[in-house]
Structure formats: C-alpha cells, structure tokens
C-alpha cells in the first residue's frame, strides 16, 4: 500500500512539474519533450488505477504518435520563441495575481470535497473489479452498448477534425503527380511503347 502511495505522489508530482515546464520551457523542443514526460507519468497513474489498457493506449497514441507529430511540427516550423514571449513579463504580474486568486479559490473548492456515502450508489457504471474482468473486455462490454452514443459522437468529432485539416491545408498544386489507378490499369502497351525497327549498327 505504501509503495502505491509513494508511486502515486511520484507520478503526480512529476506530471505537474512536467506540465509547468511545457509552458515555461524556452525551447519548444524541450516543451514537447516535457509533454512526453507528462504523458508517461499519466500512464503510470492509470496503471496504479488498474487501467493498464488506457495506460498502454496513452503511451502508444499520445507518446508514440501525437507527441512525435508535435515534435516534427515544431522543428519544421522553427517558431521564433523570443517573439512569442514578447510582453510575457509585462503581463506577468497582473496575470499572475489573477491566476493565483483563481488557483486559491479552486483550492478552497477542492478542500470542500467529500465523498458522500450516497455517491457510490449513484455511479452510473461502477468500475468492475480488475481481477474479475480484463480491461479490454470491460471496455468492450460497454463501449458499443451503453456508451455507443458517446463513442460514435467522438468518432464524428474526429471525422470533422480530419475534414478540417484537409480543408485548411490541402492544396492541389500544379505539377504534382498523382497516382491514378484507372489510368494505370487502362494503360496499354500501344499507348506507351513504340516499337522501332532498328537496323543493326546504325543507331536510333
């Protein structure tokens, strides 16, 4: 138990520190690296909760795909960090005060948190005991039945994101070569191959 507690605090602290570093690091590449660190530690928290599947998805998808993509983008764009930071110090005092006030207020709110005895009764879907059922099976049981609506809605959101990305960035340039399968299939030897009689020794 004590190990779990220690692990929880370790992961949590590293996650928060890494998150702070993401926004405060001077070099955007470092930011992305801290982001990856935060993701890893979140995955650790999931493991502690017994949600190994989510932990693995976290690592594979976020670290493996998203964060790496970020890294590419950041390196390709060559963002001028100094420009972005212009005015940061100028607004820091005021922004800092407001942020601090908000933070303290939220701490007060969180301080009032109690798990009322009835809460567990109201849980829409109680977490199954990990030993009874595997992670993936538990998810599979509900994701296409009880939560099919949410799942599909999320799917459509991703579709929109995809459409958006294409709409905003895709351009058909002059001179780009596209693979047209029908053209390839329909291509016949007569169109492309010219058979020439070459008399020996004379060249073309």
């Amino acid at each position: 138990m004590i190990i779990q507690t220690l692990a929880f605090y370790l992961f949590s602290i590293i996650t928060i520190v890494a998150a702070v570093m993401v926004i405060s690091a001077r070099n955007p590449v470092h930011s992305v690296l801290f982001l990856i660190l935060a993701f890893f530690n979140s995955a650790g928290l999931f493991v502690l909760l017994g949600a190994e599947f989510l932990a693995m998805v976290m690592v594979v998808v976020y670290v493996g795909a998203v964060a790496v993509l970020f890294m590419f983008v950041v390196m390709m764009l060559d963002v001028n960090i100094a420009e972005l930071r212009q005015g940061f110090l100028q607004y820091l005092p005021l922004g800092g005060i407001v942020g601090l006030v908000l933070l303290m207020e939220l701490a007060v709110v969180a301080g009032g948190f109690v798990i009322s005895p009835e809460v567990s009764e109201r849980f829409a879907a109680p977490i199954p005991v990990p030993s009874d059922i595997a992670n993936t099976e538990a998810l599979g049981n509900i994701i296409y039945t009880k939560y099919v609506y949410f799942f599909q809605a999320a799917g459509i959101i991703l579709l929109v994101a995809m459409i958006g990305a294409i709409v905003l960035t895709h351009r058909s340039r002059e001179g780009t070569r596209k693979q047209r399968i029908s053209n390839q299939v329909n291509r016949r030897p007569e169109d492309t191959i010219e058979i020439k009689k070459v008399s020996t020794g004379s060249g073309i």
Binding site: F150, A153, A154, I156, I157, V160, A161, I163, G164, L168
Partner: peptide, 23 residues
C-alpha cells in the same frame, strides 16, 4: 454532461474550420 460536451465540441470544431474556410 458527456453528451452535452460532445455535442458542443462537434459543433465548435466544425465552426473553427469554417471560420478559417477562406484560408
């Protein structure tokens, strides 16, 4: 609350794209 959020995000995301449509 979840369907509220998902609906809202679906709408918002479409709108973000549309705002920048004249890219």
């Amino acid at each position: 609350l979840i369907s509220l959020y998902l609906g809202l995000e679906l709408q918002s995301l479409s709108l973000y794209v549309m705002a920048a449509f004249q890219r």
